[in-house]
Design a protein around this nucleic acid. Structure first.
Lengths: 242, 242
DNA sequence: ATTTTTGATTTGTGATCACACTTGCGTTGA
DNA sequence: TCAACGCAAGTGTGATCACAAATCAAAAAT
């Protein structure tokens, strides 16, 4: 009985191989739609059809309809009484509502993270700061997508440190809901002279580095408030006109 | 052209008829599973199968699998790597995590509601208080289900007044997640000499009646903390033994 | 006696089909 | 000219089937 030897051999193999994983089609569809939603690829009020998405994603309707159902329950999409689904329209109340919820929950998450982040984690997000500057220096025009992705990574790298398995999915849901709104604001931002986002991120990192929970919370709220405030003004002036 | 007359006739009919609604099977399955989860009919760590539930609910697998998918995304259920689904197990960290999130979000919701509830709404929840006392007086033994239902109605009647379409679904998700845990505590409660829940509810109503947002928040946190604290102790002593 | 292997059953996933409802457009009627 | 009707294309929902992976139990091997 070479049980120990076999065991040891298996462990050696396991150490060299990387798990292949078994992602379902539905998972891929869901992830793809999430990415599109957070990235603002869909416009508010846009109607989505199961067969249309299935064609676009080159699958059958089955994975798509389940993914849509999931997105509807987290309020990333909206089920109309006609049984068609659309991305929720932007309203003034919704903007304020989303900002309030995000300030509350993401504020709490970063406050928790402030007391739990070690030098290792601080270094990670500082590196992202550098990456950000670098990207800005090159000043590529179409990097608005990369900017959004980096911004997302920066925030969630912090939130992950809050140590709450309950808060993080809620934050993801909030990003999903505010994605289509935010993107509208971001586009407008880059046209109207742009503010330095990196400045806000630096304030956040500074507060986290000195473990200042309250300071981090305030810096974060300032950061996420900007696009919402911008969007709010835009909507109000549009309402005044029309 | 009797257009006006026809219009009037149609309105008369519409006033007498009640909309029939068009609830799908999937919606019914979803609601039923939600009810079971919040009510704690499923035990933590219990594994659920699609075909098993479909048989129990007397439908095909299709509506069930979509409902399960939705419940998984809101963390009411958990997808194992084996692709089977179970109700999440209770751990100490999870209990603390859930209590913190609920205090934060439901606390905010009740604080908002405190400034928005009119005499009409106050009267409604006061009536529920009376209903509660009445039920207690009869002292039916098996009314633990009704108690839970009434408790739920009481809380959500308040939350509905916070005027946030974003916070309420999150609170529902939190109840869904803590349902299985809470029920364990409630059962233990009713065996170990029970505390007067109505007392806590009265404190909440009193604070709301005088529009005391901070007082209402504190009273609410005290209310929802009890079962969690109880469960926490129970789990710790069990861990000390085992 | 313990472990491994083999085979049968169960389970989740995806595809396809049938049906009912909605929508859009062209025709018919006043 | 315009509203009402009717037909056709499109869409969501539910049922059923095929298949692969997991689970479990009995049999075989060590």
């Amino acid at each position: 009985m070479q049980k120990a030897a076999i065991e040891r051999n298996n462990e050696t193999i396991a150490a060299q191989l990387t798990p292949v994983g078994r992602e379902t089609v539905q998972d891929r569809v869901y992830s793809e739609l999430r990415r599109a939603l957070i990235g603002g690829l869909f416009e508010p009020s846009q109607v989505l059809t199961i067969r249309g998405l299935a064609d676009a994603l080159v699958t059958s309707t089955m994975p798509v309809r389940e993914a849509l159902g999931r997105l509807i329950t987290e309020k990333a999409l909206e089920a109309l009484p006609n049984r068609s689904v659309r991305v929720p329209p932007i309203t003034l109340e919704r903007i304020d509502d989303l900002l309030r919820a995000r300030s509350l929950i993401e504020g709490e998450a970063i406050a928790l993270a402030a007391t739990r982040m070690g030098p290792r984690q601080i270094a990670t997000i500082e590196a992202m700061l550098g990456e950000w500057d670098e990207m800005r220096a090159l000043k590529h025009k179409k990097d608005i997508d990369r900017e959004a992705t980096l911004n997302q990574s920066f925030h969630f790298e912090i939130y992950r440190c809050c140590g709450s398995a309950v808060l993080i999915p809620m934050i993801e849901s909030l990003w999903l809901q505010s994605g289509p709104c935010i993107r509208v604001a971001i586009y407008a931002f880059s046209e109207a002279g742009e503010v330095d986002t990196a400045h806000y991120h630096r304030r956040i990192v500074a507060a986290l580095a000195r473990q200042d929970a309250q300071g981090a919370r305030e810096a974060l709220v300032a950061d996420i408030s900007r696009p919402f405030a911008f969007l709010r003004d835009k909507l109000q002036s549009a309402a005044a006109k029309g």
